[in-house]
Design a binder for these strands. Structure first.
Length: 460
RNA sequence: GUGCAUGUAGCUCAGUCUGGUUAGAGCACCGGAUUGUGGUUCCGGGGGUCGUGGGUUCAAGUCCCAUCUUGCACCCCA
């Protein structure tokens, strides 16, 4: 028999890992709710027409496509099968795909349900997404995104709140982060300023890599992309611009004074950063002109969050998209959102050792099983304990004591109750503390109070 | 999609360079010391088609090729 396995880039999660993952999800969910966001879910698969063309050329390549059911070749001739380009053939034999992110399905959702929605609509969504990427550190083929989006409002207050959410989530999780903020409109303005408006994508993709490949690398890449030497020359001071925001913004405004779009981007960004400064952020935050982000649909603010202590790439990102719903037939609806990468956050926290004091979820007490009589007797006590919200279980068979004790020990169950025939007769129970090893007998009626007392003493 | 590594017990790894009896260790698991007491100790035990397929050789875990897995870099990204 072949060893069972799971597809490349996917993972199983053990109980220990689930406790930790749930901790992340719960933290994020609680903060989302705190800011008035409401949950929605969408299907794992979407029609391919919904997904294609939204993530750029690269994104399309990374879509998982689902083969049509039944005879998926019935409408394809042998000739087409042999000579059609693979991409064209793919659309003929597959009309569904796994979602690539949560933002595009959400845009589809908003358009489809527009009459039921009160705008501005603040929604959160925590679900897995799939990308046919080659897996490596911090990159999986199935991973969870935790998204919060506001749709139907152009106010920069939304950007401010989303960054506050970021700040609060990472503070609660105990990760030190830096929040990088930029604006596509500023990038557009810069492209216009250096006389390369048509090459904006090449320019932004190149400068996005500044911290990775250095200034020379960026210059090389832009030159290869067809930007003029003059333009590159003109761009350099902007890339290396340092100093306080108070100095950088006026300098930028002066440079982009002929670009209404650029000036608008600067104004928006100033508004956001001013708010954040007044509100007092726990995380470091800054204008980062080298931040570009790849997703095609961003038009305004762009946000990216990096862990300060662990190199992991972006653990949260987002931005404003002015016309994502337009593609689905609903014009002039602006949205802005962020997305937490739960799996990367997990990896960061794991490397930082932040999970160590997170116990494994398990029962607070286990009853030893001595046989049919005792079993029946204990089941009644168990029921009473559970009614008092005390997590409790009985070992399901009358196995050897050693085996039952080992089970309790391995599951980190703090208390074991022993009720044999003697105890049954006089309504008593042996109560053993697994940490200290000490044991005494008490009346079975006292058990609920005993555990409530102990759970308080244990701090939770 | 491109390049480079990697794979030996449930887990972490040694053995591969330099082919040569029956492939090892630690941890985990099971049993016993201890018939109503786990976590410490001692004793014993089960476990492996050496990722898979092919090739070279008298002989392959070891060398060669292919393939898959996992990881790293690029591309891109959470």
């Amino acid at each position: 028999m072949q060893k069972p396995s799971i597809p490349k880039g996917t993972r199983d999660f053990s109980p220990e890992e689930m406790v930790r993952r749930d901790h992340i999800f719960d933290t994020i969910k609680n903060v989302f709710r705190l800011f008035g966001y409401q949950p929605v879910e969408t299907p794992a698969m979407e029609n391919l027409a919904t997904l294609t063309g939204k993530y750029g050329e690269e994104g399309d390549k990374l879509l998982f496509r689902i083969l049509n059911s039944g005879n998926f070749l019935s409408k394809v001739s042998t000739d087409e099968l042999e000579h059609m380009p693979p991409a064209a053939l793919a659309t003929r034999i597959s009309e569904k795909g796994l979602r690539y992110d949560l933002t595009v399905p959400f845009a589809r959702y908003v358009v489809q349900h527009r009459n039921e929605i009160t705008f501005p609509f603040k929604r959160y969504q925590i679900q897995p997404v799939w990308r046919a990427d080659k897996p490596q550190r911090g990159r999986y083929r199935e991973f969870y995104q935790c998204d919060a989006d506001v749709i139907g409002s152009r106010s920069m207050l939304n950007e401010v709140e989303l960054i506050q959410i970021i700040d609060e989530v990472f503070a609660r999780l105990g990760i030190k982060v830096s929040v990088h903020v930029n604006n596509r409109k500023i990038l557009t303005g810069i492209a216009e300023y250096i006389g390369e408006a048509g090459n904006m994508m090449i320019m932004t993709m190149a400068i996005d890599k500044l911290d990775k490949i250095g200034l020379e690398g960026v210059v090389r890449e832009m030159r290869a992309g067809g930007l003029s030497g003059e333009a590159i020359e003109k761009l350099q001071p902007i890339l290396t611009m340092k100093g306080k925001l108070k100095e950088r913004f006026p300098a930028l405004q002066e440079m982009l004074k002929n670009s209404p779009t650029g000036l608008e981007g600067i104004q928006d960004t100033m508004t956001i950063l001013k708010y954040l400064k007044d509100l007092g952020m726990k995380a470091r935050f800054d204008l980062d002109l080298t931040l570009a982000r790849g997703l095609d649909y961003y038009t305004g603010a762009i946000i990216e969050v990096l862990a300060e202590d662990v190199p992991m790439g972006s653990i949260c990102g987002g931005g404003r998209y002015d016309d994502l719903t337009g593609i689905f037939g609903m014009k002039d609806v602006s949205g802005v959102g962020i997305s937490f990468g739960a799996d990367r956050i997990y990896d960061v926290m794991n490397e930082m050792g932040l999970f160590e004091n997170l116990g494994v979820a398990s029962s607070q007490v286990m009853f030893v099983n001595f046989g049919p009589e005792e079993e029946r007797y204990c089941m009644n006590i168990l029921q009473k304990l559970r009614q008092e919200r005390i997590t409790a279980e009985i070992y399901p068979e009358a196995a050897k004591m050693k085996k039952q004790m080992t089970y309790a020990n391995n599951k980190n169950i703090p208390f074991v109750v022993l009720i044999g025939s003697e105890e049954m007769k006089n309504g008593r129970a042996g109560l053993k503390n697994m940490k200290t090893g000490e044991q005494h007998t008490i009346d079975t009626e006292e058990l609920p109070d005993e555990f409530k007392k102990n759970s308080r003493a244990a701090g939770g």
